[in-house]
Amino acid sequence: MRILLVGEYSRLHNSLKEGLQKLGHKVIIVSSGDDFKNFESDLSVKATFFSSFWFTRKLRNGLRRFFKFDFEKIERAIRFYLILPKLKGFDHVQLINSDALELNPTISLFFYKKLFSQNKKFSLLVCGDETPVIEYLLKNEMKHSILSPYLNDSSLKNQYNFSLKYVQSNYKKVFNWLKENVNSIIVSDLDYKIPMEKMNYKVNFIPNPINTDKINFSELKINEKVIIFLGINRLSFIKKGIHFFEETLKIIEEKYDDKVEIIITENIPYQQYISLYNKAHIILDQVYAYDQGYNALEAMAKGKVVFTGAEQEFVDYYKLTERVAINALPDVNELVKELSFLIENPQEIIRIGKNARDFIEKEHNYVKIAEKYLEVWEN
């Protein structure tokens, strides 16, 4: 099959591509690389003019304030328009999101109609914010979610512009068109499966693909200090509950000054991020989640102990009898308690790290996951 994957937010599509290629398929990724993360793309629509130089970034910000429009989106639109003639004759096209092109919704819909007219079958992947997901989370019926801070404090609305845009009429129009024109909707973890099903959508649940051939497992060795890593992305700072981790680390540093080393980074490219967290034993990922996102899964594949979503729904779905990750709650006292236990019982860090790798190999192997995608696409 010839397969086109549109958009990239977490390296999900790159890992899926590698699995599909292992199975003998030809795969092309079109994306912007997701800003500072710079994920790989075969055909890039990255707005290089408005993002590469300090003076063009200043120009972009000035034009946005004056015209109330993001000129980086215009550049992306032009770049996609220029490559659109190449994007034809594919057996399957998958969008990573209804805003996979990161454009004005009207322009995105125009391009989707063109793209769909020149290819065969289509799927929409829900692996992040999406119209029905946000609609359900706004009902505030879940124990917690990425919207919890906003639902508890409406003054944070500006911090949630990215998420809340999906319930605006123009974005909803795009999603509604896609749901009527794709052959399948796929969700990547329980944080999206639960809301989509609550909103009465029939979805195909396929866990995130992790390239276990590329990511080597190394059994954790703890010598003098337990190394804890926190990677901060300011764009998702509130949604991931990072301030809970920051407060926790202050307490842990004071309590275990001679037993821990703490590494904190902020808004760095993906490859640099990975190289810095490789020496860590414990990764602090996010609170508010029920299941693991992509960064957490890659860390688990390396045998790290990850503080992330691992709610009872997750344990029940996978029928787990051993801990493969630490369920991180939006509660500093609980986080301190969990970290303290691990620091004082380093053999538990090693045991959970092994469990994490075993879990990834069983449930997230990229070739097995690629086979599941093919099954959904073909049937």
Results as ranks from 00 to 15, higher is better:
M1K: 10
L5I: 13
V6D: 08
G7K: 05
R11K: 12
H13C: 13
H13K: 07
S15Q: 10
E18M: 11
Q21P: 01
K22S: 13
K22V: 11
H25L: 09
H25M: 06
V27D: 08
D34T: 03
D35P: 02
S51M: 03
R57M: 04
R57E: 10
N61I: 03
G62S: 12
F66N: 08
K68V: 10
F71T: 12
I74Q: 03
I74S: 07
E75R: 02
A77E: 07
I78N: 01
F80A: 08
L84M: 15
K86D: 13
L87D: 05
K88W: 03
K88V: 14
G89N: 09
D91F: 02
D91T: 04
H92D: 05
H92F: 14
V93N: 09
Q94V: 12
L95W: 10
L95K: 10
A100T: 12
L103G: 10
P105H: 08
P105G: 07
I107M: 12
Y112A: 01
S123C: 11
V126R: 02
C127W: 10
G128N: 07
T131V: 01
E135D: 06
Y136E: 13
L138S: 02
E141Q: 11
M142S: 11
K143S: 14
I146P: 02
L151G: 08
L156G: 00
K157R: 12
N158Y: 00
N158H: 05
F162Q: 05
Y171E: 13
K172F: 02
V174T: 05
W177T: 06
W177D: 05
N183P: 00
I186W: 06
V187D: 09
I194K: 00
K198S: 11
N200H: 13
I206T: 10
N216W: 01
S218A: 13
E219K: 14
E219F: 03
L220S: 15
E224H: 12
V226I: 11
I228D: 05
L230D: 05
L230C: 04
N233Y: 01
S236C: 00
F237V: 01
I238N: 03
I238A: 00
G241K: 03
T248H: 05
L249H: 04
E254G: 14
K259P: 03
K259I: 04
E261W: 00
E266N: 00
N267Q: 01
N267A: 05
Y273L: 14
S275E: 14
S275I: 07
S275Q: 14
S275H: 07
N278W: 08
A280E: 10
A280T: 06
I283M: 05
Y290P: 00
A296E: 04
A296P: 00
A296H: 04
L297T: 01
E298I: 12
M300G: 06
M300H: 09
A301H: 01
G303C: 08
K304E: 09
V305H: 04
V306D: 09
E311V: 01
E311T: 13
E311M: 06
D316M: 02
E322H: 12
V324R: 12
N327T: 06
N327D: 15
N327L: 02
E334K: 15
V336N: 09
S340C: 09
L342S: 02
N345M: 06
P346A: 04
E348Y: 13
I350F: 11
R351K: 15
I352W: 07
A356H: 06
R357G: 06
F359Y: 13
I360V: 13
I360A: 01
Y366Q: 04
V367I: 14
E371P: 02
E371G: 10
K372R: 15
L374E: 05
W377P: 07
